[in-house]
Design a protein around this nucleic acid. Structure first.
Lengths: 225, 225
DNA sequence: ATTGGCTTCAAACGTATGTTTAAAACAGAC
DNA sequence: GTCTGTTTTAAACATACGTTTGAAGCCAAT
């Protein structure tokens, strides 16, 4: 049996279980029994449960951030000296995610859910790990967003970016459950690609909403003050 | 010491800790030591940890859903026989949330975060509990949204509602942290009301985005299939 | 055939969890 | 003051967790 077989089987099982149940709710015994390896294998190959979590993220995120940097390079080059538009920037990100080589058909949705969990579950170690390892492409994305929405005040832009992050992280983090609900209700199947296809226009429209709408309807008790 | 004092102290401590760390990550011992009550008090007064989680939600959600129903009643009455607009519906919800009597200044944001966690962490029992107890006002909100966006297909509407939920839950849940960051950066103070004031236009614009935007830019590799 | 370095394995370790117990403390009614 | 039902308490329970251990297994190089 090849050396890496055990490592990969652990990563596969962990990825799936983490996505299904979250990090704290998934025990090493669940992972190793799903992967059909010995319990001690995790600590032998990875060192600790936290290190396994990092490895699961790194396996996807390292090639992804490389793809993303390339996509941003191409985008900026093709735009000459004027900055890419909001739509272009959002699509560059989306396409980089969708086009990543998948281990299986559920690849992206599993990983999107993991990213959502990373944001949502307050796993301090994970946050630190992600910031340290993948902070650069994230900052670059932020810079592109700023250049693409010069009409927004810094404060407006700040909050709207949070709204975008929220819609994305939240939807993706529960996308499996949501898809199931939708399928039970309407019989419609939905791929992650299609969700992204619906999400991007929503985000772009929200990002570019008129400031004039920033007024509650007549008779509202929320003051604009 | 009044009988209910212990119960309330447990609820206060649990609410705060759950919001900070999630449900599985918060132990009964953390809760009881923060509440300065005996460990067994939780099982004595609530029966189990899961029942405590339900009680935390019920304490906020029961009065809130009553307020919300009233707000929807008034809104529908004032609209005569035509359905309320999207903006009106969103504002009715927002104002009901903002105007709820708060236990403390962090009241809303804590509870928004809990709602987000309920959706995100796969706590089957919680989901079942919330659906059973508070499914009615939720369905009503959904019906209003449907009437306010007749131009959307059922599937589009379904996903856009998820996006709205996500942006809201995510932003409100971390609004404390986000507000601090923003204040450090720009010196601007932001109240929950003001966040809502920015959020609603974002949501409304996203909700009413043109379907035509549902096409990736020229040269995109994401197929519309 | 024997060695040496990885890898696997069953078992155990220490710790933390939710829950239960039975006695003690308390409060209000008579 | 005594009794009665409720609440609090310290201690223990059983179980599950992440991690460690030391022996056994394996495979390539000698």
């Amino acid at each position: 049996m090849a050396q890496s077989d055990t490592v990969d089987r652990i990563l596969d099982a962990a990825e799936e279980l983490f996505a299904e149940r979250g990090f704290s709710e998934t025990s090493l015994r669940m992972i190793t029994s799903k992967a059909k390896v010995n319990l001690a294998a995790v600590n032998y190959h990875f060192g600790s449960k936290n290190a396994l979590i990092h490895a699961v993220f790194a396996r996807f995120l390292t090639p992804f951030s490389a793809t993303l940097e390339k996509a941003f390079d191409e985008l900026e080059e093709s735009c000459g000296d004027q900055p890419p538009t909001l739509n272009q920037t959002l699509w560059a990100l989306t396409e980089s995610a969708v086009r990543m080589p998948q281990r299986n058909e559920k690849g992206i949705s599993i990983f999107m859910r993991l990213l959502g969990l990373a944001y949502t579950q307050s796993q301090g170690h994970l946050r630190k790990f992600l910031e340290q390892e993948y902070g650069d492409p994230f900052s670059r994305f932020m810079r592109l967003l700023k250049a693409a929405t010069p009409q927004l005040s810094a404060v407006d832009r700040y909050w709207r970016i949070q709204f975008m992050l929220g819609a994305t992280a939240f939807t993706m983090s529960s996308s499996d459950a949501l898809r199931d609900i939708l399928q039970n209700k309407t019989g419609v199947e939905t791929s992650v690609q299609e969700i992204a296809l619906r999400l991007v226009p929503f985000l772009a429209a929200g990002m570019q909403a008129e400031d004039a709408m920033l007024v509650p309807p007549k008779g509202s008790k929320v003051s604009v003050a």
